[in-house]
Each structure stands twice: as structure tokens, then as C-alpha cells.
Amino acid sequence: MRIDIDKDVCIGAGQCALTAPDVFLQDDDGYGTLAPGREDGGGSPLVREAARACPVGAITVSGAAG
């Protein structure tokens, strides 16, 4: 799967990092970012849930899991 975070839309709410902390982190400014080596989601079943949890829709997930 492919995960994209639109940095221009992200407001740093942190819902992604709370929902899937193994995939999403918050950078030094508080904005969502992908954990190193997790650009494909690492097979986490929570990636799509994290995208849905984003209050501004800054996360896009495409492709099949796994």
C-alpha cells in the first residue's frame, strides 16, 4: 500500500499517531509523518483507520494492504 500525508493540510492533531503509532509519528513541529521504514504501512491493519481518524483528511492510503 502507499501512504501519503499532505503536509499543507495536516494540522498536527495527532490522531494518526494515536491510532497507528507503529506507522505514524509526529515531527518536531507536531505534524504527522511516517515512521522510518514504514512508507508502505508495514502491513499494519490500523493504517486505514488512522487515515479515517484524521480530522482534516490529510492522509491518503492507496493500494492493497500487505
Rank of each mutant, 00 (worst) to 15 (best):
Q15F: 15
D40R: 14
G42I: 02
G37P: 08
D29K: 12
L18A: 15
T19P: 08
Y31D: 01
T33I: 11
G37M: 04
D8I: 05
T33H: 11
D28R: 13
Q26K: 05
G57W: 11
A35N: 05
E49F: 11
L18P: 03
A50V: 02
G42W: 00
P36K: 04
G30T: 04
R52L: 13
P45G: 08
G14E: 14
R2G: 08
G57E: 06
L34A: 10
A50K: 07
R38M: 15
I5A: 06
Q15S: 14
A64S: 09
A51L: 06
P55I: 09
V61Q: 06
P36V: 00
T60R: 13
D29G: 07
D29P: 03
G63C: 09
K7E: 15
K7V: 08
I5F: 13
T33V: 15
Q26T: 03
M1N: 00
A58W: 07
A51P: 05
Q26H: 05
Y31P: 00
S62Q: 06
I3K: 01
F24G: 03
F24R: 01
G43T: 01
D6L: 05
A51Y: 09
G42T: 01
I3N: 07
F24I: 07
D40H: 11
E49Q: 13
T19V: 10
I11N: 14
A53H: 13
L34N: 03
V9K: 05
L46C: 07
D28W: 13
L46D: 15
D27M: 06
A35S: 08
V47S: 01
A58R: 12
A50M: 10
A64M: 07
D22I: 08
A35C: 05
P45F: 12
A58M: 11
I5T: 13
D4T: 15
Y31I: 04
L46A: 13
A64Q: 06
G42F: 07
I59P: 05
R38Q: 15
V47E: 00
V47D: 01
P55F: 12
P45S: 14
G63N: 03
D22T: 10
Q15E: 15
A50N: 07
K7W: 15
R2E: 13
D8W: 08
A64L: 09
G32E: 01
S44Q: 07
Y31F: 14
G12M: 00
R52D: 13
G42N: 04
S62E: 00
D22K: 11
V56P: 09
Q26A: 05
C16Q: 15
D40P: 05
L46G: 06
E39I: 02
